[in-house]
Simulated scan of single mutants.
Amino acid sequence: MDITIKITDREGEIHEVQAPTDMNMNIMELVRMYELAPEGTIGICGGMAMCASCQCYVLNDIELPGMGDDEDAMLSEAFNVKPNSRLGCQINLTENLEGLEIELAPES
């Protein structure tokens, strides 16, 4: 089943995209799939929570999976962090994310 997610890219453009929930993908991979960030500027560490290139801001009140220690530690060192910051690679696409709205954080 596909869900709809709104992603504001780094230029401020809003993209409403269809996200598959049956492919074990995460937000960072979704952004790459739709090429919403230039190649080499997102997911640099391959989704290991070891860089903050996929940092995003959660814009609406959708319940997300809890933050793990790796993600928490990475965000404590990242630039442009806000209270609503998450790493896109740590948020798997599930049906619970229907209607999620996020904004890609600026490149550091």
Rank of each mutant, 00 (worst) to 15 (best):
M1G: 09
M1L: 10
D2K: 13
I5F: 06
R10C: 06
E11L: 11
G12F: 11
G12N: 11
E13W: 00
I14Y: 09
I14P: 03
H15Q: 12
E16T: 04
E16M: 04
V17Y: 15
P20F: 12
P20I: 07
P20T: 08
T21I: 06
D22C: 08
D22Q: 12
M25C: 00
M25F: 00
N26H: 15
N26F: 03
N26Y: 11
I27L: 15
L30S: 09
L30I: 14
V31W: 09
V31S: 00
R32A: 02
R32W: 07
L36Q: 15
L36R: 12
L36T: 15
A37P: 07
P38A: 06
E39W: 12
G40H: 13
T41W: 14
I42C: 00
I44E: 09
C45V: 02
G46T: 05
G47Y: 02
G47V: 04
M48G: 03
M50C: 08
M50S: 03
C51V: 02
C51H: 06
A52G: 13
A52N: 07
C54F: 08
Q55S: 08
Q55A: 06
Y57N: 00
Y57Q: 02
Y57S: 01
Y57K: 03
L59V: 05
L59W: 00
L59Y: 03
D61N: 11
L64Y: 14
P65H: 15
P65F: 15
D69F: 03
D69N: 10
E71I: 09
E71H: 00
D72I: 01
A73I: 01
A73T: 11
A73E: 03
M74P: 00
L75H: 01
L75I: 00
A78G: 14
F79G: 10
V81P: 06
V81R: 11
V81H: 10
V81W: 02
P83N: 07
N84Y: 10
N84G: 01
R86F: 10
R86L: 10
L87E: 07
I91C: 05
N92S: 02
N92G: 09
T94W: 04
E95C: 11
L97I: 01
G99E: 14
L100P: 02
E101W: 06
I102M: 12
L104S: 02
A105Y: 07
P106V: 12
E107A: 10
